[in-house]
């Protein structure tokens, strides 16, 4: 397998003075069987996986991957690093790292290299009616309010798909809503100002909903924002049973 190499100066656009550098061997899952899979890149510390990908792309411009915000807000750059789903822009490459295996998220069809078709994720997201629908009290929830704490628990989701990739159930059960959509449903159901609570609970409680979760907790372990989608699903399960 060919290994592409470049000097530290060429691969690092932000190399400054005597900043410490790390040389990493990347093995990247490529969709084209003939494409180069292995790269050796030099990175200035501190470095993240996205830096390595960009360095790799300078060596082979045909390398496909997505990114946008670079600050873990957009969720676009989710990939699997050494088998674990994470955000490329957030995953640090420590100075003692020698090798990295980069693969597309699991549970999605690969479009090209590390780019996946996230349609199933968004179809599930749509099914829980993911937008706020006014219907309850119109006043803002005060800080410290228990209901507000419940809402805020899952509010930081950036819909990156890491939890989907870590969930074994979505792969074997095409109708399953998945952790992110159910977490979103809980966030809205917990909001007493929301007017579509009954509809959301109905969707969450029916076929493909909360009862399909097997509490493997892969979603919670993978969430790059530190959320606990598994706990959201369990909470939603209790509420949908009561409803």
């Amino acid at each position: 397998m060919a290994v592409l190499e470049r000097s530290r100066r060429q691969t690092n656009i932000e190399t400054a003075g005597d900043a410490p550098a790390t040389t990493v061997r990347l093995t990247i899952a490529r969709s084209d069987a003939g494409a180069v899979r292995e790269f050796r890149v030099a990175l200035t510390q501190p470095a993240v996986v996205l830096d390595a990908l960009l360095a790799g792309q300078r060596l082979d411009p045909s390398l496909g991957f997505r990114y946008s915000c670079r600050v873990a807000m957009c969720g676009t750059c989710a990939v699997r690093v050494n088998g674990r789903p994470t955000l490329a822009c957030q995953q640090p490459i420590t100075p003692d790292t020698d090798e990295l295996l980069l693969e597309p998220l699991a549970g999605f069809a690969v479009v090209r290299d590390l780019v996946v078709d996230t349609s199933p994720f968004w179809n599930a997201w749509r099914r829980v009616v993911p937008w706020f629908m006014p219907g309850g009290p119109r006043e803002a929830l005060p800080a410290g309010d228990a209901s507000r704490a419940e809402v805020e628990r899952g509010l930081d989701c950036i819909a990156c798909g890491a939890c989907w990739s870590a969930c074994d159930v979505v792969v074997t059960n095409a109708g399953y809503l998945g952790p992110a959509a159910l977490n979103r449903a809980l966030t809205l159901v917990a909001d007493e100002r929301d007017g579509a609570r009954a509809e959301r609970l109905r969707v969450a409680g029916q076929q493909g909903g909360v009862t399909h979760c097997h509490s493997i907790l892969g979603c919670t372990a993978a969430c790059p924002k530190g959320l606990d989608p598994s706990a959201s699903i369990r909470r939603l399960r209790r509420w949908s049973l009561v409803a």
Binding site: A29, S31, A33, R80, N82, G83, R84, E103, P104, A106, G107, F108, V110, S165, A166, D168, V171, T172
Partner: peptide, 19 residues
């Protein structure tokens, strides 16, 4: 296979990976 749908190697050789 669920975790590694894009892999080109056989599933037995993937047992024991970090994931």
């Amino acid at each position: 296979v669920a975790r590694d749908s894009a892999a080109r190697t056989g599933w037995i050789s993937r047992i024991g990976r970090a994931s």
